[in-house]
Structures are given as structure tokens and as C-alpha cells.
Design a protein around this nucleic acid. Structure first.
Lengths: 216, 216
DNA sequence: TAGATTGTTAATCGATTAACAATC
DNA sequence: TAGATTGTTAATCGATTAACAATC
């Protein structure tokens, strides 16, 4: 299974979203140009990205939407669903537990854990919430290999260690902590600071560059 | 004010985090090499990125930590705090309202809004929650120009339009919707799908490539 | 057939890394 | 002074865009 450039992977969900939308309108086929218009990605870029999925179109016609959806979903492995554990049932954790789209993206949270015992024993959106004492036992018993961390920053590294010790091979990290883990472990960070940095700077540039000269 | 490459901007908060940490240990100066080790970024990359902030170091010594912190914060405009509005007080919205780090990153949520009237009139973490009926009035009156959208996907575009009509110039968008707005509006998306796509594929590659041949 | 769209190869662009002179 | 680190220029690398032959 060849590796696909990260930037291509990040664009694939955008295409997928567009394809779902177009499909709903009743259209059966679509061209790279059309996808390009809807996603603001260069036409040639779309063609190259789609090529990575292995899908083959027909000249003059384009691609069958269903074929494309299938190819992309397959490529991301979003058509079969992996079980995962979530640790940290704060607001962010709850938000993820309630995010129903997740199952359409190949991920299902089958259990949540929290250090504070108050939440323990209850259910949220059908997902059971356990105390951390149950964590390692359930993790190794259920052979789950994907973990989501939505704890406070202080707890993140420790939780990550526990996960890896008990068979997790991939971690979706929502804390700002840079996790130190064996290189073979797959870590994806949701980096809000990076995003905010871009926003802040762009705003600063805009305000600075459009402000009257004499104010500076 | 020159524009800085996006990829550089996204790395700056990482450096900043490392600098805070190092400062706590009592160290006063730091070299690019040291930052590189802590952040897993190439040494030369760090030097180039720091050059964008305009900071100047001294050969053989490095940089004073305080100077660097200052330069980066200034660069991101994180030392003066901008007010912003948040719309959509679901779990994700609440998570952000409780995220105290935000004010250390130049952003303060001074009011939150929600379409559901239940939440209206109360406070969360000291932030007042209003109904949407108050939105445009307060927005234009308080001259807020940054908006955060944490609504359900369906509402995102409409909320964005309202924001822009009432003076918002930058939107931090936590929904998966691609907002259609005038080009001069600054939009930063927190794109969970993109992140999940990378994670999913890497897991698929790993499982496929390490699985016994005869299972495939 | 003619024209549009595909897939692919070549050119360009930007970002990363390497090399090196300047200097404390 | 010698050595380490800076800032910057040059080389490399990878990703994006342009060009074009193949084909339905």
C-alpha cells in the first residue's frame, strides 16, 4: 500500500464532501474541473489527487460520482469502521462523542474514560463512560488500537503512554502537548494554536496595512 | 507589514511553547539548535522562521529567551488581546469558552450566542450567553471584528453572513462547512476531517503493510 | 469526426536543507 | 585566538501548475 502525500490526504475529504452534495442533486457523473470549482483547488491538482486513489475516469465524460466516492472512501479506509477509545470527558470530549459524522469517517468511539469519578458509570450518546481504573484492562481486552485524547494538557502524556503500552498504534491528540512516543506510533494533532497563529497574523497584517499611516 | 509564510506561522506557536518551558527551568538564553531538538524541526528551518520575526541573536551565544518570546508574540500579535464573539454554545463552544489559554493567545471571547433560548441569559466561565436576536445589534455596537463559529454545520453559512454584514473581518470556523464569503474576509478552518483522513490512511497503510501476506 | 476530458510528463514555484562567510 | 553560532546565499527537494498526447 503506497503512501500518499499528506497534503493530498487532507484534500480528499473536501472532494468527498462536494461529491456527496452533488450526488444529492441527482447528478451521476462529474469532471475534475467541476470538483475544482467547488473546492477552490486547481483543476490539475484535483486530477493528480484523484489519481492517487487509483480511480480511472473516461475522457469526455468524467467520473461516475459513485465510483469516486467509493475510491476516496476506500483510500481513507472510511468504509469500514474502527473502534476507538476516548479519554477526557470534558466539553471537548463530549463534543466529539456527540459528533455523529465520525462513524461516516471510519471511526466509532465505543467507550470513554475520565479521571473524575462523577461522570463515571453514565452514558452519553450511547457511549459508556468509565473511570480510569478500568482503562488498561478494557483497552487490552477489546483490542482497540486507536485512541483519542481530550484530557487537560497535564494528563496527555501519561494517557498516551498507557495507550501505547496496551496496544494502541494511533493517537488523535486534541491537546496542545507534543507527545513523546515511539516513532512507529501514529500521532495526529488537532493544533488549534497553529490555526490561531495564522488567523492572528493575517488580522494584524490587515489592520496594519489598511490603517491610516499617521496612526503608526 | 510583510506577510509570513503560513507554514512558518504554524510553527511559531510550537517554538513559543518550548520557550515558555525552557524559561521555567531558569535558562536565560537559547540557541536555534536547542529549539530544533525540542520541536523536531530542522535547525536551519528554525533559524529561518525566527528571522521572519525580525529578532537578532548573537553568534556563539544564541538568543535571549525573553527576546525570542517577545518577538514571536509580537509577530502573532498575541500580546494585545482582541475581543471576539462566539456563536454556537454546544459542547464545542463551551470547550472553547473554558479554554483559558485563549487569552494568552491574543483572543478573548466577550460574548456567546445560541439559537436555542434555554441557554440564553446565563453565564459560562464569566462569559454572557445571549439569544441570536441580540447578535447583530451587539456585534455592530461593540465593534468586534473577529468571530468564532461552533454551530451545527447547517447554521454556519448564515451566521458567517451575519458576522460579515456587521463588521467582522476574520472568522475562526470550527464547522466542516466551506464558507462562501468575500475574498477580503479572513477565514481559518479547524479541519478535523483533514486530520482524521491522515490518521485513517496511515493506520490503513500500517495494518496492510504489516499484516501477513496470505491474509490479503 | 471534432471536441472535451482524461492521465501523464515537463516546467515552475515555493519550501526545506546544506553550505559558508561573518562575528562574538 | 579558536570555536560555536548566527544570518544568508545556494542547492535540493517536493508540490503545484502547465502542456500535451491519448481517447471516448
Amino acid at each position: 500500500m503506497d503512501s500518499i502525500p499528506i497534503l493530498t490526504l487532507k484534500r480528499l475529504p473536501k472532494y468527498l464532501e462536494t461529491l456527496y452534495q452533488l450526488k444529492k442533486t441527482g447528478i451521476r457523473t462529474v469532471t475534475a474541473t467541476k470538483i475544482a470549482v467547488f473546492t477552490d483547488v486547481h483543476m490539475t491538482q484535483v486530477r493528480k489527487d484523484l489519481a492517487y486513489t487509483g480511480v480511472v475516469g473516461t475522457p469526455k465524460v468524467g467520473h461516475r460520482i459513485d465510483d469516486l466516492i467509493n475510491a476516496i472512501e476506500q483510500c481513507l479506509n472510511w468504509n469500514d469502521v474502527s473502534s476507538c477509545f476516548l479519554v477526557g470527558v470534558g466539553h471537548l470530549g463530549k463534543a466529539l462523542m456527540g459528533y455523529s459524522e465520525l462513524s461516516r469517517k471510519g471511526l466509532r468511539i465505543i467507550a470513554a474514560f475520565d479521571a473524575k469519578p462523577e461522570a463515571t458509570g453514565s452514558y452519553l450518546h450511547g457511549i459508556p463512560i468509565y473511570g480510569m481504573d478500568k482503562f488498561t484492562n478494557l483497552l487490552s481486552r477489546l483490542h482497540v488500537h486507536i485512541g483519542i485524547i481530550t484530557t487537560p494538557a497535564e494528563a496527555a502524556q501519561e494517557v498516551a503512554n498507557l495507550m501505547v503500552e496496551n496496544g494502541v498504534i494511533a493517537i488523535w491528540n486534541f491537546t496542545p502537548v507534543k507527545l513523546e512516543l515511539p516513532t512507529e506510533i501514529i500521532v495526529e494533532n488537532i493544533d488549534m494554536s497553529a490555526s490561531l497563529a495564522v488567523l492572528s497574523r493575517r488580522v494584524a497584517e490587515k489592520l496594519y496595512n489598511t490603517a491610516p499611516r499617521d496612526l503608526i
